[in-house]
Amino acid sequence: MTKQPFQLALLTLLALSGCSEEEVGKATFTTWGEAYIEEGIPASDEGFVDGWSLKYDKFLVNFHQIQVGAGNGEVAATAPKSYFVDNVEPGRKQLVTFDEITAQAWDRVGYQIKPAISSAEVVAGSPSDLDMMVEAGYSLYIAGSASKDDVTKTFALGFTTGTQYQECHSEQNGKDTAGIVVTDGAEDTSELTTHGDHFFYDRLQGSAGSNIETALRFDTIAAADDNGDADGEITLEELEKQPLDVRLYDPSGLPAANMKDFMTGLARTVGHFRGEGECTISEAE
Protein backbone atom coordinates (compact mmCIF):
# COMPACT_ATOMS: atom_id res chain seq x y z
CA MET A 1 0.00 0.00 0.00
CA THR A 2 2.68 2.46 1.01
CA LYS A 3 4.98 1.30 -1.78
CA GLN A 4 2.66 2.38 -4.58
CA PRO A 5 3.22 6.15 -4.35
CA PHE A 6 6.98 5.58 -4.14
CA GLN A 7 6.98 3.34 -7.21
CA LEU A 8 4.85 5.82 -9.08
CA ALA A 9 7.20 8.65 -8.21
CA LEU A 10 10.21 6.58 -9.26
CA LEU A 11 8.63 5.71 -12.60
CA THR A 12 7.71 9.34 -13.17
CA LEU A 13 11.25 10.46 -12.37
CA LEU A 14 12.73 7.89 -14.74
CA ALA A 15 10.33 8.91 -17.46
CA LEU A 16 11.11 12.56 -17.00
CA SER A 17 14.84 12.00 -16.98
CA GLY A 18 14.47 10.03 -20.19
CA CYS A 19 12.50 12.83 -21.83
CA SER A 20 14.93 15.57 -20.78
CA GLU A 21 18.10 13.75 -21.85
CA GLU A 22 20.03 16.38 -23.72
CA GLU A 23 21.45 15.80 -27.16
CA VAL A 24 25.12 16.65 -27.10
CA GLY A 25 28.17 16.62 -29.32
CA LYS A 26 31.79 17.69 -29.30
CA ALA A 27 33.47 20.87 -30.49
CA THR A 28 37.16 20.69 -31.31
CA PHE A 29 39.45 23.59 -32.13
CA THR A 30 42.68 23.20 -34.08
CA THR A 31 45.18 25.57 -35.65
CA TRP A 32 47.14 25.54 -38.88
CA GLY A 33 49.60 27.92 -40.53
CA GLU A 34 48.95 26.86 -44.12
CA ALA A 35 51.54 26.69 -46.87
CA TYR A 36 52.78 30.27 -46.51
CA ILE A 37 53.93 29.63 -42.94
CA GLU A 38 55.02 26.03 -43.40
CA GLU A 39 56.75 26.35 -46.76
CA GLY A 40 57.24 30.06 -47.40
CA ILE A 41 55.96 32.92 -49.51
CA PRO A 42 57.23 33.00 -53.09
CA ALA A 43 58.15 35.87 -55.35
CA SER A 44 55.64 36.34 -58.14
CA ASP A 45 52.17 37.72 -58.54
CA GLU A 46 50.90 35.15 -56.06
CA GLY A 47 53.45 36.24 -53.47
CA PHE A 48 55.69 39.27 -53.13
CA VAL A 49 55.25 41.63 -56.04
CA ASP A 50 58.72 43.18 -55.58
CA GLY A 51 60.76 40.04 -56.16
CA TRP A 52 61.35 38.84 -52.60
CA SER A 53 60.68 35.35 -51.32
CA LEU A 54 60.39 34.53 -47.64
CA LYS A 55 60.73 31.53 -45.37
CA TYR A 56 59.56 31.40 -41.78
CA ASP A 57 61.70 29.68 -39.14
CA LYS A 58 59.26 30.45 -36.35
CA PHE A 59 55.65 31.60 -36.25
CA LEU A 60 54.76 31.64 -32.58
CA VAL A 61 51.16 32.30 -31.53
CA ASN A 62 49.40 32.36 -28.18
CA PHE A 63 45.72 31.46 -28.24
CA HIS A 64 43.52 32.39 -25.29
CA GLN A 65 39.85 32.37 -24.36
CA ILE A 66 38.59 30.03 -27.05
CA GLN A 67 34.88 30.25 -26.48
CA VAL A 68 31.64 28.84 -27.85
CA GLY A 69 28.46 30.76 -27.15
CA ALA A 70 25.20 32.08 -28.47
CA GLY A 71 23.79 35.45 -29.36
CA ASN A 72 21.62 35.46 -26.23
CA GLY A 73 24.74 35.56 -24.10
CA GLU A 74 24.77 31.88 -23.22
CA VAL A 75 28.27 30.43 -23.07
CA ALA A 76 28.55 26.74 -23.87
CA ALA A 77 32.24 26.39 -23.14
CA THR A 78 35.44 28.32 -22.60
CA ALA A 79 38.86 26.77 -22.92
CA PRO A 80 40.33 26.23 -19.48
CA LYS A 81 43.78 27.37 -20.49
CA SER A 82 45.88 29.10 -23.10
CA TYR A 83 47.76 27.42 -25.91
CA PHE A 84 51.21 28.10 -27.32
CA VAL A 85 51.88 27.03 -30.90
CA ASP A 86 54.67 27.31 -33.43
CA ASN A 87 52.71 27.08 -36.64
CA VAL A 88 55.83 26.44 -38.70
CA GLU A 89 55.46 22.87 -37.47
CA PRO A 90 53.49 21.18 -40.24
CA GLY A 91 49.89 20.16 -40.12
CA ARG A 92 46.86 20.93 -38.04
CA LYS A 93 47.43 20.97 -34.30
CA GLN A 94 44.66 20.21 -31.84
CA LEU A 95 44.14 22.92 -29.24
CA VAL A 96 41.09 21.85 -27.25
CA THR A 97 38.01 19.66 -27.41
CA PHE A 98 34.83 20.57 -25.59
CA ASP A 99 32.84 17.45 -24.73
CA GLU A 100 29.14 17.50 -23.98
CA ILE A 101 28.21 20.63 -25.88
CA THR A 102 24.46 20.93 -26.37
CA ALA A 103 23.63 19.98 -29.93
CA GLN A 104 22.56 23.22 -31.56
CA ALA A 105 23.88 26.14 -33.58
CA TRP A 106 26.32 28.23 -31.53
CA ASP A 107 26.66 31.51 -33.40
CA ARG A 108 29.11 33.31 -31.16
CA VAL A 109 32.53 31.74 -31.43
CA GLY A 110 35.63 33.69 -30.54
CA TYR A 111 39.19 33.58 -29.32
CA GLN A 112 42.06 35.86 -28.43
CA ILE A 113 45.65 36.18 -29.52
CA LYS A 114 47.38 38.05 -26.72
CA PRO A 115 50.59 37.93 -24.70
CA ALA A 116 51.73 34.51 -23.59
CA ILE A 117 51.40 33.25 -20.04
CA SER A 118 53.65 30.70 -18.40
CA SER A 119 50.79 28.29 -17.70
CA ALA A 120 50.00 27.95 -21.41
CA GLU A 121 49.99 24.44 -22.84
CA VAL A 122 52.78 23.96 -25.34
CA VAL A 123 50.88 22.41 -28.24
CA ALA A 124 53.70 22.72 -30.76
CA GLY A 125 57.07 24.37 -30.45
CA SER A 126 59.77 24.76 -27.89
CA PRO A 127 59.03 25.43 -24.20
CA SER A 128 62.02 27.78 -24.24
CA ASP A 129 60.26 29.83 -26.92
CA LEU A 130 57.22 30.06 -24.66
CA ASP A 131 59.49 31.30 -21.86
CA MET A 132 60.90 33.92 -24.23
CA MET A 133 57.38 35.04 -25.21
CA VAL A 134 56.27 35.31 -21.58
CA GLU A 135 59.34 37.28 -20.58
CA ALA A 136 58.98 39.72 -23.49
CA GLY A 137 55.19 39.97 -23.28
CA TYR A 138 54.76 38.82 -26.86
CA SER A 139 51.52 37.55 -28.34
CA LEU A 140 53.02 36.86 -31.75
CA TYR A 141 56.61 36.28 -32.76
CA ILE A 142 57.91 35.69 -36.25
CA ALA A 143 61.44 34.81 -37.35
CA GLY A 144 62.78 33.90 -40.74
CA SER A 145 64.61 35.15 -43.78
CA ALA A 146 63.76 36.85 -47.03
CA SER A 147 65.79 36.82 -50.22
CA LYS A 148 65.93 38.75 -53.45
CA ASP A 149 68.63 38.22 -56.04
CA ASP A 150 71.82 37.84 -53.98
CA VAL A 151 70.52 39.69 -50.91
CA THR A 152 69.21 37.92 -47.83
CA LYS A 153 67.67 39.62 -44.82
CA THR A 154 66.77 37.88 -41.59
CA PHE A 155 64.16 39.05 -39.13
CA ALA A 156 63.01 38.17 -35.61
CA LEU A 157 60.07 40.34 -34.62
CA GLY A 158 57.87 40.14 -31.55
CA PHE A 159 54.51 41.85 -31.19
CA THR A 160 52.70 42.63 -27.95
CA THR A 161 49.27 43.25 -29.41
CA GLY A 162 46.23 41.76 -27.72
CA THR A 163 43.43 41.06 -30.16
CA GLN A 164 39.95 39.71 -29.58
CA TYR A 165 38.52 37.75 -32.49
CA GLN A 166 34.80 37.46 -32.04
CA GLU A 167 31.65 36.56 -33.93
CA CYS A 168 33.72 34.34 -36.18
CA HIS A 169 31.97 33.09 -39.28
CA SER A 170 32.86 31.08 -42.33
CA GLU A 171 31.41 29.67 -45.49
CA GLN A 172 29.96 26.22 -44.94
CA ASN A 173 28.31 24.35 -47.79
CA GLY A 174 28.09 27.54 -49.77
CA LYS A 175 26.44 29.55 -46.98
CA ASP A 176 27.94 32.07 -44.63
CA THR A 177 27.61 30.44 -41.23
CA ALA A 178 28.09 32.19 -37.92
CA GLY A 179 30.02 30.13 -35.40
CA ILE A 180 29.57 26.38 -35.35
CA VAL A 181 26.80 23.82 -35.47
CA VAL A 182 27.07 20.94 -33.01
CA THR A 183 25.02 17.87 -33.79
CA ASP A 184 24.05 14.99 -31.53
CA GLY A 185 26.83 12.48 -31.06
CA ALA A 186 29.10 14.13 -33.62
CA GLU A 187 32.28 16.17 -33.41
CA ASP A 188 32.53 19.59 -35.06
CA THR A 189 36.07 20.77 -35.78
CA SER A 190 37.02 24.42 -36.26
CA GLU A 191 40.44 25.58 -37.36
CA LEU A 192 41.85 28.82 -35.97
CA THR A 193 43.89 29.55 -39.06
CA THR A 194 46.87 31.90 -39.01
CA HIS A 195 47.83 33.73 -42.18
CA GLY A 196 51.53 34.37 -42.56
CA ASP A 197 51.28 36.64 -45.59
CA HIS A 198 49.30 39.33 -43.78
CA PHE A 199 52.38 40.85 -42.15
CA PHE A 200 53.49 42.05 -45.57
CA TYR A 201 50.35 43.57 -47.04
CA ASP A 202 50.48 47.18 -48.24
CA ARG A 203 47.11 48.29 -46.86
CA LEU A 204 45.66 48.18 -43.35
CA GLN A 205 42.09 47.99 -44.53
CA GLY A 206 40.75 46.16 -47.48
CA SER A 207 39.55 48.13 -50.41
CA ALA A 208 35.85 48.62 -50.81
CA GLY A 209 36.41 48.60 -54.54
CA SER A 210 37.94 45.96 -56.74
CA ASN A 211 39.96 48.63 -58.55
CA ILE A 212 42.33 48.89 -55.62
CA GLU A 213 44.40 45.80 -55.09
CA THR A 214 46.33 44.73 -52.05
CA ALA A 215 49.84 43.41 -52.60
CA LEU A 216 52.62 41.77 -50.61
CA ARG A 217 55.77 43.90 -50.41
CA PHE A 218 59.17 43.60 -48.75
CA ASP A 219 61.40 46.29 -50.34
CA THR A 220 60.58 48.92 -47.71
CA ILE A 221 60.96 46.42 -44.88
CA ALA A 222 64.38 45.42 -46.20
CA ALA A 223 65.30 49.08 -46.54
CA ALA A 224 64.75 49.50 -42.81
CA ASP A 225 67.91 47.47 -42.25
CA ASP A 226 69.78 49.21 -45.07
CA ASN A 227 68.97 52.55 -43.44
CA GLY A 228 69.75 51.15 -40.00
CA ASP A 229 72.88 49.20 -39.09
CA ALA A 230 72.81 47.26 -42.37
CA ASP A 231 73.84 44.06 -40.59
CA GLY A 232 71.35 41.97 -42.53
CA GLU A 233 68.90 41.58 -39.65
CA ILE A 234 65.71 43.64 -39.64
CA THR A 235 64.66 44.76 -36.18
CA LEU A 236 61.56 46.50 -34.84
CA GLU A 237 63.74 49.45 -33.88
CA GLU A 238 64.82 49.80 -37.51
CA LEU A 239 61.24 49.42 -38.72
CA GLU A 240 60.18 52.19 -36.35
CA LYS A 241 62.70 54.52 -37.98
CA GLN A 242 61.60 53.56 -41.48
CA PRO A 243 58.94 56.02 -42.68
CA LEU A 244 55.95 54.68 -44.53
CA ASP A 245 56.52 54.95 -48.28
CA VAL A 246 53.25 56.63 -49.17
CA ARG A 247 53.72 55.76 -52.81
CA LEU A 248 53.40 52.08 -51.92
CA TYR A 249 51.61 51.84 -48.58
CA ASP A 250 48.15 53.00 -47.57
CA PRO A 251 47.30 53.03 -43.86
CA SER A 252 43.66 53.15 -44.91
CA GLY A 253 42.64 55.83 -42.48
CA LEU A 254 44.38 54.20 -39.54
CA PRO A 255 47.39 55.62 -37.71
CA ALA A 256 50.72 54.26 -38.94
CA ALA A 257 53.52 56.63 -39.88
CA ASN A 258 56.32 54.06 -39.90
CA MET A 259 56.80 50.42 -40.80
CA LYS A 260 56.74 49.19 -37.19
CA ASP A 261 53.31 50.70 -36.62
CA PHE A 262 52.13 49.40 -39.98
CA MET A 263 53.27 45.82 -39.32
CA THR A 264 51.85 45.98 -35.81
CA GLY A 265 48.49 46.87 -37.32
CA LEU A 266 48.81 43.97 -39.71
CA ALA A 267 49.67 41.64 -36.82
CA ARG A 268 46.06 41.96 -35.67
CA THR A 269 44.83 40.52 -38.95
CA VAL A 270 46.69 37.21 -38.67
CA GLY A 271 43.90 35.27 -36.98
CA HIS A 272 41.12 33.64 -38.98
CA PHE A 273 38.45 30.99 -38.65
CA ARG A 274 38.11 27.77 -40.59
CA GLY A 275 40.51 28.83 -43.32
CA GLU A 276 38.91 31.71 -45.13
CA GLY A 277 36.50 32.61 -42.36
CA GLU A 278 36.58 35.97 -40.67
CA CYS A 279 36.03 37.39 -37.23
CA THR A 280 35.28 40.87 -35.99
CA ILE A 281 38.34 42.07 -34.14
CA SER A 282 38.90 44.50 -31.32
CA GLU A 283 41.39 45.15 -28.56
CA ALA A 284 41.53 42.16 -26.22
CA GLU A 285 40.68 42.85 -22.61
Binding site: E46, L204, Q205, L216, G253, L254
Partner: peptide, 12 residues
Protein backbone atom coordinates in the same frame (compact mmCIF):
# COMPACT_ATOMS: atom_id res chain seq x y z
CA UNK B 1 34.62 52.54 -34.75
CA UNK B 2 36.94 51.03 -37.33
CA UNK B 3 39.83 48.98 -36.05
CA UNK B 4 41.81 47.15 -38.69
CA UNK B 5 40.47 45.40 -41.69
CA UNK B 6 42.23 43.59 -44.44
CA UNK B 7 41.10 42.14 -47.70
CA UNK B 8 43.14 39.56 -49.51
CA UNK B 9 45.05 40.52 -52.62
CA UNK B 10 43.74 39.21 -55.89
CA UNK B 11 45.14 35.78 -56.61
CA UNK B 12 45.94 34.22 -59.92
Amino acid sequence: PAFVRLDPPRRP
